[in-house]
Design a protein around this nucleic acid. Structure first.
Lengths: 81, 81
DNA sequence: CTAGGATGTCGGGATATGGAGACACCACAT
DNA sequence: ATGTGGTGTCTCCATATCCCGACATCCTAG
């Protein structure tokens, strides 16, 4: 059962939608339900559900706009610690 | 004038504070003032100032909590396009 | 079939949030 | 000295945001 061949695909994130995708991907990989993750992260399951579906709040959009203007890209990947 | 030796240090981001640092770093690298960037990104300079100083809004904190719980790390770097 | 878990979705309401404008300070130039 | 640009910080306040139920749906198990 040793990790077969590392399918740790890093996520390129540049919109609220792709942020949601990534979170869902990693949540599944962690074997957690929305309720469990929401609980551990101290937030409401409804919100997590929205977030995974690409919830477009002003705040998140704002940050992505800044990064875009700066030509900066965001990457998410599994911390190997 | 060909890029001498690539000082494109990628940013490991895991808190609102480090997010602010990164944004400021890249803004300076782009040779923009807060007012210019705020304008281009369509937001208030006051907000950008706060953001760079590590503004801890619930929203940003929430997202970092989720990532932390999932053991996911965020990286910012210059998109080389 | 029934039961349960997981997820999407809706509405209501308390609260956090960011825009706008103004002001102060600092550094640097003229 | 004065002027100018960049930045930090304050207040006010309209509004975006998120939590909290509650309900519906879809699976899978039993």
């Amino acid at each position: 059962m040793e990790t077969p061949h590392r399918e740790d695909k890093p996520y390129r994130v540049y919109t609220p939608a792709s942020l949601g995708e990534a979170i869902r991907y990693y949540r599944h990989q962690a074997g957690l339900s929305q309720a469990q993750l929401a609980d551990r992260a101290g937030l409401n399951r409804t919100y997590l559900s929205d977030l995974e579906q690409g919830l477009e709040t002003e705040q998140v959009r704002r940050i992505f706009r800044v990064l875009k203007q700066l030509g900066v890209r965001m990457t998410l990947d599994k911390a190997d610690w």
